[in-house]
Amino acid sequence: MATSNLKQTLGDLNKESFISLLTKIIGESKFLQNNPPELIPEEDRVIKHVLDCLLPYSTTTGGPLIVNHVTYFPGRGNLIVEYPGTQPGKILSFVGMHMDVVTANPNDWDFDPFSLSIDGDKLRGRGTTDCLGHVALVTELMKRLAETKPKLELTVVAVFIANEENSAISGVGVDALVKDGLLDKLKGGPLFWIDTADKQPCIGTGGMIPWKLQVTGKLFHSGLPHKAINALELGMEALKEIQLRFYKDFPPHPDEQVYGFATPSTMKPTQWNYPGGGINQIPGECTISGDVRLTPFYK
């Protein structure tokens, strides 16, 4: 089917249906925060709403959609939805619509982050752009394909995933799907990763590498600092040297401006932990954690 004909067949986005679904999904976002061990998301809360929209059009009810709910950890599922085409092997896929979110402290927000609100033409709430809005949008696309039933040569696949925002726990989301070969057939055609935290297409992004630096010093009373090795100071000095070497090895790349990258490659701390103790104690250990964001122009 020609692109123009397909657009005409699918029509415009049903805004009322989209807003209704997004309202339900954002309403679950308090339980989708991903920061183990304190906060472990329950992605099946989202899948329930997606299935409510799509199961009436699935093959189990006489519809065209092939729906596969894949779970590796209780309450933390992934969802693969297919609209079959007419030509075997031809495929187009949308992957990366993740159902977990980063944490949000309501005290830091001017509105409730865990419910959808509308301010003019703005949709507000945790996950509207990263990535629950994408979940709702692609759900509406698959629903519309099932409703209109256009004859496409390409099979269209949507892969909704768990556990994108944190790598402390593995074997839950897309890594497990790849390991089990469930995404192998997607290699036969274009794959669009639908997870840009913005409102326009993104043709390139920086990869994320988490890191952790464990520092061991010597605990002692702060009145006798010469008998201690301050783990906090030791960690700061070590991290300073590591960062200096990183930015020497991975300086801003000229292609970053060509492709509109907002920042060059970065390495920075984002979390700092130590066992605790009195203010008059020099800590003997601490852990610094952070990430590396590396633009794709470096190997």
Rank of each mutant, 00 (worst) to 15 (best):
G290R: 03
D12W: 06
L32N: 03
L123I: 09
K149Q: 10
L224P: 11
L137I: 06
N34S: 09
P252A: 11
V156A: 06
N68P: 05
V46P: 01
L54Y: 03
L22C: 04
L116G: 02
V159E: 03
D184P: 09
Q243C: 15
W272Q: 12
S17G: 02
E285R: 08
N105T: 01
T71G: 07
G171Q: 08
C53Q: 06
G96R: 07
W211D: 10
K240A: 14
L132S: 05
K212W: 06
Q281H: 14
P275Q: 04
L55N: 07
L182Q: 08
K218N: 08
K248A: 14
A228P: 11
I282R: 01
I26S: 02
L232D: 12
K185S: 10
M97K: 02
L32S: 05
A168I: 10
S4L: 12
G85N: 07
E140M: 05
I19S: 00
Q87P: 10
H226R: 12
F31G: 06
K227A: 14
G207L: 14
G133K: 00
A2P: 14
L132I: 07
L54W: 05
K122T: 02
L224N: 15
H221E: 14
L137H: 11
T71F: 05
L116N: 05
S115G: 05
